[in-house]
Deep mutational scan, measured.
Amino acid sequence: SHCAGCKEEIKHGQSLLALDKQWHVSCFKCQTCSVILTGEYISKDGVPYCESDYHAQF
């Protein structure tokens, strides 16, 4: 499978399933500020955001 963030193949190591896609753990980050999302996040149109950036933009 391929990472939804960087589009590279996910080989051995940690990956996560979010928004119905596979991601490298380090690629699942806020679209705006690039903080790596480990806990709470909000998505809009399949794109992840941290809570503060989501509320600031939408």
Results as ranks from 00 to 15, higher is better:
Tyr49Arg: 03
His2Leu: 11
His12Gly: 12
Gly13Val: 10
Glu8Lys: 13
Gln14Tyr: 04
Ser34Val: 00
Ala4Arg: 08
Gly39Lys: 12
Thr32Trp: 12
Glu40Phe: 04
Ser1Asp: 15
Ala56Asn: 14
Val47Phe: 13
Val25Met: 14
Lys11Tyr: 10
His55Cys: 15
Gly46His: 03
His24Pro: 00
His12Asp: 15
Ile10Trp: 02
Cys27Ser: 02
Val35Trp: 01
Ser43Tyr: 14
Leu17Ala: 14
Cys27Glu: 03
Asp20Trp: 03
Ser43Val: 12
Thr32Asp: 15
His2Met: 11
Val35Asp: 10
His55Pro: 11
Leu17Ile: 09
Gln14Arg: 09
Lys7Ser: 10
Ser1Ala: 04
Gly39Leu: 04
Thr32Met: 06
Glu51Val: 09
His2Ser: 06
Val25Arg: 14
Cys27Met: 00
Glu8Thr: 08
Ala56Gln: 12
His24Thr: 00
Gly5Thr: 07
Ala56Val: 10
Asp20His: 13
Ala4Asn: 15
Gln31Leu: 04
Lys29Pro: 02
Asp53Leu: 01
Cys3Gln: 01
Leu19Glu: 06
Ser34Leu: 05
Ser1Phe: 04
His2Lys: 08
Phe28Gly: 01
Gln57Gly: 12
Lys44Phe: 06
Cys3Arg: 00
Gln14Lys: 08
His55Gly: 10
Asp20Glu: 15
Gly5Cys: 05
Glu51Leu: 09
Cys33Ile: 01
Tyr41Arg: 04
Phe58Leu: 09
Cys33Arg: 03
Trp23Gly: 03
Ile42Thr: 13
Ser15Gln: 13
Thr32Arg: 14
Tyr41Leu: 03
Ser34Ala: 13
Leu16Gln: 09
Ser34His: 14
Tyr41Cys: 07
Gly46Glu: 02
Glu8Ala: 14
Gln22Lys: 14
Leu17Ser: 12
Gln57Leu: 11
Ala56Met: 05
Lys11Phe: 08
Gly39Cys: 05
Lys29Ser: 03
Ile36Gln: 12
Lys29Thr: 08
Pro48Ala: 12
Ser26Val: 11
Ala56Trp: 07
Gly39Asp: 10
Leu37Lys: 01
Gly46Gln: 08
Cys50Thr: 01
Ala4Val: 09
Glu8Arg: 10
Tyr41His: 05
Tyr54Ile: 07
Cys6Trp: 00
Ala56Tyr: 11
Lys7Leu: 08
Glu40Ala: 14
His24Lys: 02
Gln14Phe: 02
Gln31Glu: 12
Val25Cys: 14
Thr32Ala: 09
His24Gly: 01
Ile42Arg: 14
Tyr54Gln: 08
Glu51Ile: 03
His55Asn: 11
Thr38Asp: 11
Glu51Thr: 06
Cys50Met: 02
Gly5Asn: 06
Asp53Pro: 02
Lys7His: 10
Ser52Phe: 10
His2Asn: 15
Gly5Ile: 05
Ser1Asn: 06
Glu9Phe: 05
Val35Thr: 12
Ala18Gln: 10
Leu37Ser: 03
Gly39Phe: 04
Gln31Met: 04
Glu8Leu: 10
Thr38Ser: 12
Glu9Ala: 12
Ala56Pro: 08
